[in-house]
Design a protein around this nucleic acid. Structure first.
Ligand code: MN
Ligand code: MN
Ligand code: ZN
Ligand code: ZN
Lengths: 138, 138
DNA sequence: CTGACCTATGCAACGGAAGTGCATTTATTG
DNA sequence: CAATAAATGCACTTCCGTTGCATAGGTCAG
């Protein structure tokens, strides 16, 4: 518990009760999480607070946002080494068409792409879709 | 004009007046187009008709949908050789942070990625973001 | 301790975009 | 021409992200 408080403090986020709970919730999940997911897990908390908590976490580099193509924004905790605030940690994401979950594949970086003359890339998003390990296993 | 009618017919889309206009509009643009874009270009047409036209085009392989991370669905005509209906034509897309336009880089295919054991990829989406050729040119 | 102050939270409402149900018009075909 | 099918138009809904403003709660100077 104290580690979470420290982690948040280190990232310039005041460790309120709610924020610690949300952090804990995200830490226990191994899949990307939407605002609605959190809303259902903390039914008595206000949606706006949860929304703003995620935005604060994002700005302070506690979580990174994931666009998996479902049209719903998702979030996941940043890895210890990751420095999203400065430059994107360009790992890829996998969305399962079966269980509908999205996971970070933090070990798999997005390969460098040679662009035509005049194009300058600053950021990249790569999402693979298919069947995840849990769903293909059985 | 007759070519458009033929093209639509070949793809199993009845060439109504509206559909031909929309096709022409898409053909004249070299950037991905949203429903709202089309709505503004054809102010007197109903949004639902435009929406369903795009969906019909998509299903019949006339256009492909593009998710560029802006949260707005975009569409672009498929290349002559492309066969989106069967399998995705996995070219990448570039979104300009300056002019806010998204373009198809049809020559640039998404590289193959080695996934961890158990993951089976069926589809992929790669979007690069930065400054496009038109915006970096000056 | 106390008041001033800043931040976090809660409540309400807004806006954009995707999508659906149903009535009506337009095209097709026997 | 009549019967049928397809396309269009209108109204309405839902979902999600977002903002404005009022209140509660924690922090700190005096
Ligand atoms: Mn991730
Ligand atoms: Mn494209
Ligand atoms: Zn799965
Ligand atoms: Zn540009």
């Amino acid at each position: 518990m104290k580690e979470i408080e420290k982690k948040l403090n280190d990232n310039g986020v005041r460790p309120t009760a709610m924020r610690i709970l949300i952090y804990k919730y995200l830490a226990e999940k191994d899949v990307a999480t939407s605002l609605t997911d959190i809303e259902m897990a903390f039914a008595k908390a206000d949606r706006t607070t949860l929304f703003r908590t995620l935005k604060t976490f994002e700005k302070q580099g506690v979580v990174h946002q994931i666009d998996d193509g479902t049209g719903v924004q998702k979030y996941a905790l940043c890895e210890p080494g990751c420095n999203c605030e400065l430059e994107q940690d360009l790992h890829l994401h996998f969305h399962c068409n079966n269980c509908d979950e999205t996971v970070c594949l933090t070990e798999h970086k997005i390969p460098h792409i040679n662009l035509p003359e005049g194009f300058v890339a600053e950021d990249a998003n790569l999402v693979l879709k298919g069947i995840c390990d849990k769903c293909s296993g059985q």
